[in-house]
Amino acid sequence: MIAKIIVQLTRFLCGANVRWLGCEPRDHQRIYFANHTSHLDFLVIWSALPISLRNKTRPVAARDYWLAKPWRRYLAEHVFHAVLIERHKIPAPDSPDNPLNIMLAALKKKFSLILFPEGSRNVEEEMQSFKSGLYHLAKAVPGVELIPVYLENLSRILPKGEFLPVPLIGSITFGPAMALGSQETKADFLNRCRHAIKSLEDL
């Protein structure tokens, strides 16, 4: 119920301009990765997915932010079913609370993920460099499709630091699926992913 209202509200507020270029909204386990400029980002991707896919897709979000207030916690746990990870004091790689292990656990349960490899919301025009999580996931679960997603205008609808949205028309573009090359280094791969998002900007 709450989820439905949020989806409709997001679609209304953001103009709901959704394009699938080079991939279809089909039932395949995926990691959607996108540029990050606004709180609306994951909401828009989540709302753009057909409901059958949405139920199997979980956004990766910051644990400190989403557990800070009771209503946020409720939304994260019961509406978005977010995969919450630690951003600051990152637990050791062998701990089950390590971000990578939490994401892998969700993938093992056959969920798709929504991920923002820039880490935090960007306030500059240019995208920030990507954190390495995406690379490690691509390496650990090679069967999962990596879908670049370009989000446009959302930073104008709800910029960082503002709480009142302005109803401009945003657009969301899903690009063709990618995979990690067998010889590809971490830096090359992350760079390629970053460019994949950027190339959707001009389409």
């Binding site: 103009g15 306030v123 205008n153 930073s155 104008r156 910029p159 503002e162 009142l164 949205p165 302005v166 109803p167 401009l168 028309i169």
Partner: peptide
């Protein structure tokens, strides 16, 4: 107005003005 403002670039500092406008 939504279509018009979407097409004409504004900056973050205009956010509150835009909120008022809409």
């Amino acid at each position: 107005l939504r279509e018009f403002i979407t097409l004409t670039p504004t900056r973050k500092a205009d956010h509150r003005s835009l909120f008022w406008a809409f």
